[in-house]
Simulated scan of single mutants.
Amino acid sequence: MNTSPIDMFALGIHLGDDGTVLAGERRMTGDSGGWTVAAFHVETDEDVHADHWEMHPQADEAVCVLSGGARLYLRQENPEREEEAVTLTAGTAFVVPRGRWHRLELDGPSDLMSITLRRGTRLERRLG
């Protein structure tokens, strides 16, 4: 058993389908064999790919703000409708439904945590 703490800003926690919990490389896409818990220190909108929409087809995603603040935008199915915005402050979270396109913009430097099943994650450049 390893008794060293895990640096959550350097590694992700992978929750295996078989009940294992392992620290490993943080990946925004791909299949880690289960759910991923990842923490991020972010400074600018570029750090959260604000110019891209993201979607997780296999699972919901919990987006948690540990410190700072962010706005989470949900893309509407009808492109003529305006994006739906959710304001997140320190200590709050939002559950993005499975298959829903979303993106983030920061209110300033922040610490975020994401919990999702990354299998099949897609990114799409935001137009406009």
Rank of each mutant, 00 (worst) to 15 (best):
T36G: 00
W53H: 12
D51N: 03
R27I: 14
D51H: 00
E25Y: 00
P57Q: 11
V48M: 07
V37Y: 14
S32H: 14
E43G: 01
G24N: 04
V37H: 12
T20K: 03
E46V: 06
G19S: 08
S32N: 09
G34Y: 10
D31H: 04
A50Q: 04
V37A: 14
H52R: 15
E61V: 12
D60M: 09
M28C: 02
W53C: 11
V21S: 11
T44S: 09
H56E: 08
V63W: 00
G34S: 05
G30I: 10
M28H: 07
V42P: 10
G34E: 09
E54F: 06
M28R: 02
G30C: 13
W35F: 13
D17R: 00
D47C: 07
D17V: 00
R26L: 05
E43D: 12
G24H: 01
F40A: 09
M55T: 12
A38D: 04
A59K: 03
T29R: 01
T44V: 02
M55P: 02
G19C: 09
W53E: 13
M28L: 14
T44Y: 02
D45I: 05
R27G: 15
A62H: 09
G16H: 07
T44M: 02
A50L: 05
L15K: 01
G34K: 02
G30L: 14
L22T: 09
D60Q: 12
V42D: 09
G34M: 06
D51A: 12
F40W: 14
P57F: 11
H14C: 05
I13E: 13
D31A: 03
R27N: 14
H56F: 12
D17F: 03
D17M: 01
A23E: 08
